[in-house]
Nucleic acid binder design. Sequence first.
RNA 1: GCUCGGGUGGCGAAAUUGGCAGACGCGCCAGACUUAGGAUCUGGUUCCGAAAGGAGUAGGAGUUCGAGUCUCCUCCCGAGCACCA
Length: 846
Amino acid sequence: MSTQRKQFPFSEFESRWQQHWIDAGAFHATNPGDPGFDPARPKYYILDMFPYPSGDGLHVGHVEGYTATDILARFHRMRGFNVLHPMGWDAFGLPAEQFAIKTGQHPRITTARNVEKFRAQLRALGFSYDWAREFGTTDPEYFRWTQWIFLQLYNAWFNPGTNKAEPISTFTGDDPDSARLAYVAEMPVNWCPELGTVLANEEIVDGKSEVGGFPVERRPMRQWMLRITAFAERLLDGLDGLDWPDSIKLLQKNWIGRSEGALVQFQISNFKFQIPVFTTRPDTLFGATYMVLSPEHPLVPQITAPEHRSAVEEYQKKVASKSDLERTDLAKEKTGVFTGAHAVNPVNNEPIPVWIADYVLMGYGTGAIMAVPAHDERDFEFARQFGLPVREVVREPHATGSCFSGEGVAVNSGFLDGLPTAEAKRAISAWLEERQLGRATVNYKLRDWLFSRQRYWGEPFPVVWEGGRHRAISEEELPVVQPEMDDFKPTGTPEPPLSKAREWVQYTEKAERETNTMPQWAGSCWYYLRFCDPENPLRFIGTGAEKYWMASAGTPGGVDLYVGGTEHAVLHLLYARFWHKVMFDLGHLTTPEPFQRLVNQGMILGPDGQKMSKSRGNVVTPDSVIAEYGADSLRLYEMFMGPLEQMKPWSMKGVEGVHRFLARVWRLGMQENQEGEWVVSEDLADIPFTSAQARVVHETIKKVTSDLASLAFNTAISQMMVCTNEFVNAKPRPVQVLRILLPLLSPFAPHLAEEMWSRLGFRGAASAQPWPVHDESLLVESETEIPVQVNGKVRARIRVAVGATKEETEAIARACPKVLEATAGQTIVKVIIVPGKLANIVAKSA
RNA sequence: GCUCGGGUGGCGAAAUUGGCAGACGCGCCAGACUUAGGAUCUGGUUCCGAAAGGAGUAGGAGUUCGAGUCUCCUCCCGAGCACCA
């Protein structure tokens, strides 16, 4: 822009190299069986979370993760790995469809245009993707297999005996439809009127839709569900073997929400049935003084006494009209009404009143609780509100007087008296089990995955309905492609847009197609598999390709490194693990987990330290940075900002800083002649390093190599800066420094490294050089400087020979004038010597 | 409220197993070369102090010859969950 004279001609060579890499297919990975495949090379599968090609284009936040993986992909290639580094498009789903509706164009057209834009932006960054493997989730040849995998789920059930998914043919019950991993259920779901679709629990944030932030209401609807709850335990256990951030593991763990407790059956007085409750504190059963049902509990109408009916129904109505947000507002007072019914506490046959209250949720446990107001805050609050009895049954170690929900010793509890909580739990569970009144059990927060959406732009289900029953269509009919429609907008009712395509819906005279579509997550649940073998027309992934790329050398996962944002912790990352486990159980895959190692890049904030957003006007686009400073500077800056995982603000001055560094590297090898053209520098000479130069160079090789292994890109770059600063004023300058530095730099700044490599007349490509290896012997110095402390404070520095003994070091340290001064009049009581590190003299006043 | 992360110069940040706090970069100050500098190069730059010296990693205690790093308490910021029985 304002820079008339560029510090180095990046705009001239960057696009040239990008074109060259594409024309040459420079970063194509070979599969087993391909010509040129080398089985001796180890594989490295490094994957980015592929983007939704939204209309806004790529964002500097995307660029951070993509740059990190690109650097590692290039690094591993130079280290001799066969690297799979693919890119594609997660193009189905709400963002793409909403963009299409906004612009009034068919999503296929807007998606294609957005993809083109994203692709161009990625190419302008010089990323070394294997473009031959590119695909979008909206390609019929891709979603043919998404639909095929759905059929695998449809045709499978979870066998609790084997703890595995199995073909539905091994199911021996009389209603296979009730056991399928993909099933239809009528249930209260999250309906978002604004988006015109239902949403999964995972897509609701604070009672609003994750996309758009629109209000969501509960209404009963018939929907497709996936039985992810059957895998709750394995999804939880599987986390242990994964090299993922603890925070993400914890998020998944909390989302799955395992809790141990007991089911207890409460007989309802004057009725023939019992109502089970789930409790984590069966030891407090003697303290259960009332029972609470969720207002939506199906037995409420039956048990409600006539004289309470109007109050109960009124309360139910009031609760139903509340949004989730209002209902879960913790600040509000507890509300509820008495049903007139009583339950019998099984442990002492006491009748206890049955209430309904909205603090009991239908979606967790059994939708009913035993209330122990003495030892549960919520029950206590409720009991106080309505004057219900409170009975202490756990004695706390140090009485506080308030509601005590911790562990203690059982009291007022008959045969449990005197038992510590843990033992009391065991004793009561055994007691209940013996009498068939209950049993120890495990409960999960995780709900089954609501899998259908009332949208146009998604994968149609490969299912038809006939006579009120669903059945799968045959695999030969895949893919099921959406009909061409001019009006693909949501209908505003739960009726999906596809239902408007009458001809398409009519499958046969009697059978109609399912008109719901799959959610966005469907396509991203398995794309990492398709990248291994994207062209395969016969299988979703070839067995050879799967074995090779998803091999895991003793670890559960196949993708060696997966990089993306935290926002998918309980969505994509949980769903993909679920599908993967099903396909593993059914024998289609050889690893139990999809992603061995996961790294989250931190968010990049605007220059004002705020989250980037159009409304704040603080958005930095990659395009503008590339135009002014070049792709290499953008890449380098994103890595130099700080640790990958950390949240950090953008600074244009910081971009200038790394740009200056690249200019210094450029001038290590290049100079401008009279005509203003860049030519090879006259200062370069074929001379050996001085020992100081050799030390810096080899220190740099060592540090860059180890920092890359630990993803410490920022410190790797600082070390290359140190190295460059060492040479920038050396005249003559040993040309070998560039033979080493350019390969080290090439993963970070590939265009500049390649351009200099070729201008200097070096052979081959910088990016194809073997990774430099450092010589440890060049790092050692003969003497080293160490600090001398007196009572822990640094008083002097001394030079000692490397390998000096403790005695030698101590002698030098004691003789030091500053030390003598500091210890004058004192007695030296102790001397600590850490050889090669420091000396500490402990002195005391005499 | 609960559960995780974090608090280091004017700013982004470095700092093997506890062993020279502030590498590298930004910014700032001074100088050089220049018609010019928002180019480039050189030197300086944690704070207080003229210096000697002292203080210093959110605050307070503790362990240790020695603590940014380990332990306990308090405060602040960020993220997640949120009546989960």
